[in-house]
Amino acid sequence: MNWTKTLGAVLAVFAMLGADFRLLRRNPKAGWAYAVITVFGLALSVTLIWNPDLPGPSEWISAVYGPLGRWLKP
């Protein structure tokens, strides 16, 4: 199951590249920025497919804002 999902994520990225191929050719200088975001998104999705309980940004924030947040609890 996880392998199918991983394959799906990779296929989605390929579909994305195919759709943006012409735009990318017109702005070759933006290619690296495109690559940074895409690789980040793909890496994150593969990590989460294999490890869905990874602590997310909301947990990190809660560690910082915890004392304030507890005051707000009804």
Binding site: D20, A33, I37, G41, L54, G56, S58
Partner: peptide, 29 residues
Amino acid sequence: FANVFRVNDYRLFVYPVGLVIAVMSMWVA
């Protein structure tokens, strides 16, 4: 993102950012 990377056309980043948003939504809680 387009402004941070100094790219004129934000349309280039629409799909990659969408990928990040979709994955992020599964990660937030």
